[in-house]
């Protein structure tokens, strides 16, 4: 499943610059709001689900080489954070749903 499918299926809002998401295949997913846990456990090339929206999520996502961060519960990062994500080539995606709901749907879609 590509990132493009996933954005469509979960009806996610793309906060970063639009690009071709159909050639990105997430390598797994992870959810936690504790940055150290993400630093230790998120699969490289995966998607990270969090309700954190401050600028340090980009640094963490970049070091774990995440292709996207899904920001749950409708939290919106500031423009500097979005600019930084563009620079690091990480998609920031937003949804009003909870992390639990997002994770459940990703699992249903076969992203294990």
């Amino acid at each position: 499943m590509t990132l493009a499918d996933l954005i469509q299926q979960l009806n996610l809002t793309v906060l970063t610059d639009p690009k071709d998401f159909s050639n990105i295949t997430p390598q797994g997913a992870y959810t936690s709001d504790l940055l150290s846990c993400v630093m230790a456990g998120a699969p490289f090339g995966g998607i990270w689900i969090t309700l954190q929206a401050h600028s340090n999520i980009v640094a963490v996502a970049a070091l774990r080489e995440q292709c996207a961060v899904i920001i749950s519960e409708g939290a919106i990062p500031d423009s500097a954070t979005i600019a930084r994500a563009n620079q690091e080539n990480i998609a920031l995606l937003s949804t009003s749903q909870s992390s639990y709901q997002v994770a459940g749907q990703l699992w249903e879609l076969g992203l294990h």
């Binding site: 504790l34 940055l35 150290s36 846990c37 954190q52």
Partner: peptide, 15 residues
């Protein structure tokens, strides 16, 4: 609240 302070920092480093 920012997601730091999990107490895993030094442990992560050691790994």
């Amino acid at each position: 609240e920012l997601g730091f302070g999990a107490g895993m920092g030094l442990y992560n480093i050691s790994r």
